[in-house]
């Protein structure tokens, strides 16, 4: 057998999958901006993604901020640069850690749930039923989730920024002996609009990716329980990888010299 054959076949499969995802994205986005709009479903998805993800995002960013303060203090004390701690905490949280960690946590929580729900609807013919009831599945199922993902993750990240900085503040004040007033002043002085803005842009992209991969994998699931399980796994894995790749690209776009 020609050894190039499996490589070529894998490449063609990749192109086919990319094409299908691109087409799905284009159709779904077009339904996001064309009426009718399902405001009730959009509100439900916003609550599901935004409100119910608050505890997991809050806990993640809180402990990340605390660990960041401890580790940074240990490292900076070797160079007598402990004074840079507030700046490092707020910069790391707003630019990188809050958006990336919130994106990954929401991918695990919401991306999996979307894939499982839509996948189950697919294998139990509920999506076919939507079409027979003159309701476009892309508009009814996909568009509200994409809009909710795009808008809610930035809000979650803003909350995560505050909680993460608070975690660093608590450790710095009560364990490392920083002066509260000086710590807060230093944090505020060094924080720039672009630090927060870049994190919010990342969060919007990550939220879109999580919702898109959850919907796409669920929508194309086949078979029974096994197919839905595979769709759920694929949704989380693909969203996580795409978050990490797009994080680098956005960082490059914002901050590359």
């Amino acid at each position: 057998m020609n050894p190039l054959r499996p490589i070529g076949a894998a490449f063609l499969r990749f192109l086919e999958a990319t094409g299908r995802l691109s087409e799905f994205t284009a159709v779904a986005v077009s339904h996001c901006v064309r009426p009718p709009f399902y405001f009730r479903l959009l509100l439900r998805q916003m609550i599901e993604i935004g409100y119910y993800s608050l505890p997991v995002v809050g806990l993640t960013t809180l402990f990340t901020g605390m660990v960041l303060a401890l580790q940074s203090y240990t490292g900076f004390s070797r160079f007598s640069a402990q004074g840079a701690l507030p700046y490092v905490v707020v910069l790391s949280m707003t630019r990188e850690l809050a958006p990336v960690l919130a994106g990954l946590m929401v991918a695990g929580r919401i991306g999996a749930a979307m894939a499982a729900e839509i996948g189950t609807m697919r294998v139990t013919e509920q999506i076919d039923a939507l079409a027979t009831l003159s309701t476009n599945p892309h508009k009814y199922l996909i568009a509200p989730r994409l809009i909710a993902g795009l808008t809610m993750l930035p809000l979650l990240v803003l909350v995560g920024d505050v909680i993460g900085v608070f975690g660093g503040y608590v450790i710095s004040i009560y364990k490392l002996g920083f002066n509260p007033g000086i710590y807060l002043k230093s944090t505020w002085q060094h924080l720039e609009f672009m630090d927060v803005f870049s994190g919010v842009v990342k969060a919007a992209v990550f939220g879109f990716i999580v919702a898109l991969m959850g919907c796409y994998n669920g929508y194309h699931s086949r078979g029974g329980a096994q197919g839905v399980g595979a769709a759920t796994t694929n949704a989380v894995v693909s969203a996580s990888i795409m978050i990490l790749i797009s994080n680098y690209i956005i960082t490059e776009l914002f901050f590359a010299k």
């Binding site: 013919e125 509920q126 076919d128 039923a129 079409a131 027979t132």
Partner: peptide
């Protein structure tokens, strides 16, 4: 499809 009504084998009710 507005002309159609459909009873699915599994009923396909929305959970």
């Amino acid at each position: 499809n507005r002309k159609f009504g459909m009873l699915f084998q599994s009923a396909a009710l929305f959970d």
